[in-house]
Nucleic acid binder design. Structure first.
Lengths: 334, 334
DNA sequence: TTGTTTTACGAAGGCGGTTTCGTTCTTTCA
DNA sequence: TGAAAGAACGAAACCGCCTTCGTAAAACAA
């Protein structure tokens, strides 16, 4: 490993001069600077992150917090899409992104301890168990935080506009003649699921429609959707003419279940999803759904985090940043 | 921030003693050790990663390399699944995982420079442009590397057994009476796509069947599958009775396209995919496919990397580690 | 008792940078 | 032309931790 001392020795100047030159300080003459840069390049010099960070106390790194317990995480395309956009944005600014871990060598650490250990600049919380004690500690630590799609209070949040999306769905269904709209909600440990359910009730209420046909899916996946639909048909005597599902996966499960029960989609019952995952465009029938803007959510989250890191005014306010959604009408609604 | 000096001062001992106590050295008496640990805890001491790493030259961190140019990456469930398994395994051992970036602050770095900069212990290459010059440099640097599903030569690799999988598909189709099997290949810049194509030709050759009905999909996604199928029907006069697609997404595109052309799956034409993504179980028809073991691939890759880091014998050999696959028979084949 | 190990601890140097603060040597300006 | 200002550079301290080495006290052996 070649260090600034090696360079200094070779040139015959002080290491401090080399350091300044490499950092483009104006305390070094242009000729000297050129010489040092040339030698550095020739010797294959690469700075040492740990030394630099130790000295500057600026780590240029951002932590990503995925909760392990919920089994949605990296593997869920929605979150991985957000992460991808987030990562692209901050890396372009020169930050590195690291997963926050609970272990260092053989030692176990809390999230906050890990952040201190790494001297992290900021942290993105993606999915999380809201009741995790370790999170409180983190939140109160003053470390810049932004969260995505979570229900953490007192933390700057970026999330799809579930209210707008739900309203669009309901009003669209009504405009197409729906009289009896049901909702397959997502699991209530998910904040978005709660919001969508709440919005569902609110909007139907405003139109003086009954919003009681609701069943909670155990999970966000296909199978949970299928099961939830079956449960709904067992629990209610009435048959809805439209179903608003809290996610695309759930909606696809619902459609299959309806087919199994002998209903036609959309002729007998319309189905709407939420997410706009790639495949829904190609299923049969293709799915009417609410598109979430993963890229925008990830990018927005990145911007808000960076603003906090740079201590811009108001950056740290626990404001919920709602990202617009879009209703994509396809074949699953009549 | 509380340091070992703060602890030493409070107790009235030397910082070196504190350091030793915290590292459980036997040069410190048990009573002293207990005292120091107690004070450290009381003061909320957390070690500083940068200082520690600078001093020990052990970073306990692993880099993940996702190529940006191919637009498969984090968002592809196959890779995110592998990454998840990999991450879980190495984090449990106390390593942290960081995405390797090409920028540090405002400076651009090559992969190798970044690795040196961070003093990284090892690196997982997930998707990658085989022709990237920066990779050669990395490969020759001696830094422990493992790669997944890539065609990098001279690098320890973990990959699904594409030959076994393809053989199972072909033989299964033949056992069900297929006489004319076509292949929708994945993009040839993907190593797995190449292997599957090669295996397809080999196996058909062994049975003295014609293996010329092949079209390359432009990408691994649904739409490419659909387009490739259309291209196939334009290019060949004959109609196959079975189609082996290089991925599930492609297969689903193929199925839709076939439906559009008026063919029934599986009655007229059988279709087989590769991956076993969650949804394929629920599409209609559900998809016969080759299941890849994401968890095993990720874990295996982790093990091989750690072995190299620990300089275990033979660990660094550029052996290809083939992970068994499984044929899942569902409705898309008759 | 004396001599030899062990044990427990402290001083100090090093890891590879950054930064402050002099100190020369030039410029600049009155 | 002399004094003040600025430019260019080096010495040294520091970031927080680890580790080597020396030493005094305690434990053991002869």
């Amino acid at each position: 490993m070649v260090t600034i001392y090696d360079i200094a020795r070779k040139i015959g100047c002080a290491s401090s001069t080399v350091s300044k030159a490499l950092n483009n300080s104006k305390e070094v003459s242009d000729s000297r600077k050129a010489e040092i840069l040339a030698v550095a390049k020739e010797m294959g010099y690469v700075p040492n992150a740990n030394a630099r960070r130790l000295a500057t106390k600026q780590s240029w790194s951002i932590g990503i917090l995925f909760s392990e317990d919920l089994n949605i995480g990296l593997e869920h395309h929605f979150f991985s899409g957000i992460l991808q956009a987030f990562k692209t944005y901050v890396e372009d600014l020169g930050y590195e992104v690291t997963f926050v871990s609970k272990k260092v060598g053989t030692q176990s650490l809390t999230y906050l301890e890990w952040c201190k250990y790494k001297d992290i600049d900021g942290i993105l919380i993606v999915t999380v168990d809201v009741n995790d004690e370790n999170l409180n500690e983190l939140r109160q630590s003053g470390i810049p935080i932004v969260t995505v799609d979570s229900g953490l209070i007192n933390v700057p949040t970026v999330i799809s506009d579930n209210f707008q999306g739900t309203r669009m769905v309901v009003e669209y269904l009504m405009s197409r003649g729906a009289k009896r709209i049901a909702h397959i909600a997502g699991p209530m440990r998910s904040f978005s699921a709660m919001e969508r359910l709440e919005a569902f009730k609110t909007v139907l209420g405003q139109y003086e429609m009954d919003a009681s046909m609701v069943v909670e899916a155990y999970n966000y996946d296909f199978n949970s959707g299928r099961n939830a639909l079956m449960a709904m048909f067992r629990a209610f005597d009435e048959v809805p003419d439209a179903i608003y599902a809290a996610s695309d996966d759930i909606a696809l499960g619902v459609i299959i279940a309806l087919k199994e029960l002998g209903y036609k989609v959309p002729e007998d019952i319309s189905v709407v999803g939420f997410d706009n995952i790639e495949l829904t465009r190609y299923t049969s029938p293709s799915l009417t759904t609410v598109a979430q803007d993963k890229v925008r959510i990830g990018t927005e989250a990145a911007k808000r985090l960076i603003a906090q890191i740079n201590k811009e005014a108001d950056a740290g306010q626990a404001v919920i940043n709602r990202v617009p959604v879009e209703l994509i009408v396809r074949e699953s609604t009549k």
